[in-house]
Design a protein around this nucleic acid. Structure first.
Lengths: 262, 262
DNA sequence: AAGATTGTTCCATTATTTGGAACTGAGTTT
DNA sequence: AAACTCAGTTCCAAATAATGGAACAATCTT
């Protein structure tokens, strides 16, 4: 069996199973056996057993038409993850305050690798269905929260992320090269504020501030987002102090809560 | 290595990893290594590696104080699971209609083994934070949606669930023996409506109707829930037709959508 | 500072996974 | 209807990864 010459920390069987799970769960349509086979590159027998195991465990579901879809056990596990996340719980009231101050949608996102994972969202009209954003992952380099978070990393950690990062253009404004991103991050480091000027989704702008704990174990961001037709640069600038203040307040509360416990 | 004499379908390594993940993720407080060791019953070395792998995969997180907490990757996976669930998507508008008709909280839950997993929820005031219920799992035998779903099973499937089912008393009204549950299910089968009269949470009542597809591959329920001080038996009876109608409408829409596709 | 407890590493033994090939069954074409 | 394809499933010797006991290191406690 071909050995991975390029070796990082291997999680053996579990890692392979998770890779399969992720390709199926994050695809945007149901995949059939052959679809998975094509992308996974594994031998048929092996893949078949892996998928069977995932189905038996309830992580995937095999519909009668042989299509694999994400299973319900994922929901069950994630619900616990969300409910018990201390960071989210601490931040929640501040997010709501920020929402009341600005009247627009507020996001809380955490950096995981090269992605921002949205932990919470507060919005006025819940025209978009509840939950739509929570748990979603977006690339860090083209979102407000993401750039704010990146700006808080030390050089080593940032380098690790930049290395081999592939830029994808989502809109005409998306940053698509390393140099521009570094310049932008330097600016953000100076001001403590990151903007997303329709870089990820056309018509969507936002102001964000970074959230970092002392040991940089937690790197995250808060943002206020609004539609471009209603939110100009002036408006973003006006919101900036509020966002920065919310970020600072969350981190103070967090260290106050975590400090005394030990 | 001791072989499991009592053998069901084994998912090998993955199954063991998931068992560990679940004990940690579903615990109601962070567990340290020794806590997990005590419940898992596995040798130290083994458990340590399993936990390390789970952490490396982002399914668990190891905080600086050596406490394991559910990881963010779970959220990411679950968000996909939720967003892509076709059943949920089809049901959503009907749930909202039911909410408008009754003014109270509406739930959609799917049976998975002996548990109901809540797929969606529509409520007026979102005093309780968004998402609080989605993905949550409750025992089927003491919830409205759960009993409705159980009533739709055939004898074989029901027997499998009842076998070795442990009844836990949540309130004075909780059903705590097999015979009473069977009587109750027979009644539900007759009327097509299940009630939860404060059997799971004190002060909470609900009316539910079963949702089953032709092959019983999908067994679920819809419900309207309200606080006991405001919702009497009369009110539940009045809601029943609406709930039943919503259930029927969802299944019709679902078969209409799934039918033509193949 | 000694002792107890908790967390981490090591490595020969043992179980599980691997992957090629052979098999089944459904759907299509001649 | 028979021959052909293609998707999905099963099998088993060889290769790999998991196991678990024990030694080790780092913490707390007394």
């Amino acid at each position: 069996m071909a050995a991975e010459t390029e070796g990082e920390g291997g999680t053996g069987t579990l890692g392979k199973a998770m890779a399969v799970l992720e390709t199926v769960a994050l695809a945007d349509r149901p995949m059939r056996f052959t679809d998975v086979l094509a992308v996974s590159g594994q031998p048929r027998g092996t893949l078949h057993r892996q998928l069977s195991h995932l189905v038996q465990e309830g992580l995937l579901e095999l519909r009668p038409d042989h299509a694999y879809v994400p299973g319900l056990r994922l929901l069950k596990l994630a619900s616990a993850s969300w409910a018990r996340n201390e960071f989210r719980a601490v931040a929640a009231p501040f997010l709501e305050a920020l929402h009341r101050q600005t009247g627009e949608t507020v996001h809380l996102g955490v950096l995981r690798g090269r992605e921002i994972i949205y932990l919470d969202k507060v919005e006025s009209r819940q025209a978009v269905r509840m939950n739509s954003q929570i748990g979603n992952a977006s690339p860090a380099y083209c979102t407000g929260v993401g750039k704010a978070a990146l700006s808080a990393l030390d050089d080593g950690a940032l380098e690790t992320i930049l290395e081999g990062l592939e830029f994808r253009r989502f809109t005409p404004q998306t940053i698509t090269d390393r140099a521009s991103l570094l310049t932008e991050l330097a600016a953000i480091r100076g001001s403590g504020i990151a903007f997303d000027r329709e870089e990820h989704e056309p018509g969507i702008r936002c102001v964000a501030a970074p959230l970092v704990d002392a040991g940089r174990a937690l790197v995250a961001g808060v943002s206020v987002t609004g539609p471009a037709y209603r939110v100009g640069q002036q408006q973003l600038d006006d919101w900036a102090p509020h966002v920065r203040r919310a970020a600072r307040a969350i981190m103070e509360e967090l260290s106050a809560r975590l400090g005394p416990q030990r």
